[in-house]
Amino acid sequence: MPKCLVCYKWTLDEQDIKIKPEDLSLDSSRAKGKISDFDRNAVEEAALIVEKEGGAVEVLSYGTAAVKLSLKDVLSRGAEKAHWIADPSAENADAAVTANVLAAAIRKLGPYDLILCGEGSSDLFNQQTAPRLAALLGLPCLSFVQKLTVEGSTVTATRKLEDCQETATVSGPVVISVLSEINKPRIPTLKQVLGAAKKPNEEIKIADLGLKPEDLQPKALRQSVKGFVMQRRNVVYKESSAAENVAKLTASLASEGLC
């Protein structure tokens, strides 16, 4: 019966982030938070495994104070207990800091049989957390997993890579990163949402993790963040007659030397 831990990130919904035309800076004042897309697949996968094999699902997140907003949502998705670390250092944390903090928390909370993450977060998409955690915790890592089976302590994963599908087997404990196609995350029912309020959540203070100051010092710092704007012609044909639109488009393509 596997004891699972899912690491997830509370991110801004990029669909609500606007680019300010004056200086191309990002306006995220209207952006709401969300559990990073592929992390929802990781939570779902752990919940599915435990429904079948027994065991337990806990979740862990490191973020700024906003991470608390995620608790109800994540607990309504099948997790039994949430651990969270809210610290201002998360604002500028790079993948190294994130992995240092998560690994320290896992050493304190664990051991776990399966540690799951999404392939990459929807904001930075660094795709680093799972292999970094494996390196820090001295565990094997199965990344980019499209299908997962757990039988006793044997974990079998189908990984999907650019040019092949690869089946890999390992005896747990193991760190896993999942692809979005592994499952369809549930839409929590009203009962699950109400139930989430009764589930335990526990804060971990970063000071209690025994980290050195340099472990919290980002090695990669983001600078000069600018919205990307495309220079396009934006000619849109929208007559009611499709034939007319097609004729105009064909003329445009001809003028570009494309047909």
Partner: peptide, 20 residues
């Protein structure tokens, strides 16, 4: 994807930053 797995593992062991 294989390369990203290797790179992130090595970066963690080096306690180094990594840009994707």
């Amino acid at each position: 994807l294989r390369g990203k797995h290797v790179a992130a593992y090595v970066a963690a062991k080096l306690n180094a930053g990594m840009t994707t």
